[in-house]
Amino acid sequence: MPLLLTAFQYRFDRDVDAMARHLIDGVTLGWYTLGTDLLDGAPPSLVTELTGGTQFSSTPLDGFLITTDGSPPTRNTITPQSAVEQDFEWGYVLRPDGIEVISVRIQAGWGPLVPWDTDPRTRFSDHPAHWAFEKPLPVIAPAHPVRPAKPAPGTASRRNTTRR
């Protein structure tokens, strides 16, 4: 969650469509790892606080997957049933007003909507009783002027795609 919030606030300049294009449309299959390159543009002190100084690159699944019949791998649609079968714990839906958290472990499934302006250093919990997020530190102002998030022109399918 901190990586996605920071990426939205700094690398993607609060543009949810640009973030969705990169994270969802910009890869053939999906991601093996989301890396610290998503923190580009964030203040160095915030990056260090979130990562402890460790740097690693995002890695798409392309080239990692091999099908048993030799056919090219295809992107799959995550459903509540397939998420359980594939041992996913979390999914995220990029919404115009925040990240909707989906938990396979929580019986209700749908969790909170975390607003985009949430401080990435916020302590997050997977327990529903803790979903009133406490901001331990003030939100850091971006180094460049912030334009308001773009309004959604309608429901785009990529905003309703969940990723682990």
Results as ranks from 00 to 15, higher is better:
Pro73Val: 11
Ile78Thr: 06
Pro112Cys: 07
Phe12Leu: 01
Leu34Asp: 04
Arg123Tyr: 03
Val27Gly: 03
Gly35Glu: 00
Asp87His: 14
Thr79Tyr: 12
Gln107Cys: 02
Pro96Glu: 03
Phe8Gly: 02
Trp31Ala: 09
Ala18Gly: 01
Thr118Ser: 02
Thr79Leu: 07
Leu46Ile: 12
Arg158Tyr: 12
Val104Ile: 11
Gly98His: 07
Phe88Val: 00
Ala152Asn: 05
Leu39Gly: 01
Leu5Ser: 01
Arg147Pro: 06
Gly53Cys: 06
Asp117Ile: 03
Lys150Arg: 15
Tyr92Trp: 15
His130Val: 01
Phe124Lys: 01
Ile24Thr: 06
Gln107Pro: 04
Ala42Met: 02
Trp110Ser: 07
Asp69Cys: 10
Phe64Val: 06
Gln55His: 10
Asn160Thr: 13
Ile66Arg: 11
Gly30Asn: 09
His127Trp: 09
Arg21Asn: 11
Arg163Leu: 15
Arg159Trp: 14
Ala108Trp: 08
Ala141Cys: 07
Val139Ile: 14
Arg147Met: 10
Gly154Asp: 02
Asn160Phe: 14
Thr54Cys: 09
Phe88Gln: 04
Ile78Gly: 00
Asp37Lys: 10
Thr36Met: 05
Thr33Leu: 13
Asp69Phe: 09
Met1Val: 03
Val139Arg: 15
Tyr10Gly: 02
Met19Ser: 00
Arg158Val: 14
Thr51His: 13
Asp62Ser: 14
Thr48Met: 09
Ala152Glu: 02
Ser157Asp: 09
Arg75Glu: 15
Ala156Trp: 14
Thr122Asn: 04
Phe64Glu: 07
Thr161Ser: 11
Glu134Pro: 00
Thr28Ser: 13
Gly98Arg: 07
Gly98Ser: 12
Gly109Met: 04
Pro120His: 05
Asp87Leu: 08
Pro138Phe: 04
Phe64Cys: 08
Trp31Lys: 11
Ala42Glu: 04
Lys150Trp: 01
Val27Arg: 13
Ala18His: 03
Gln86His: 12
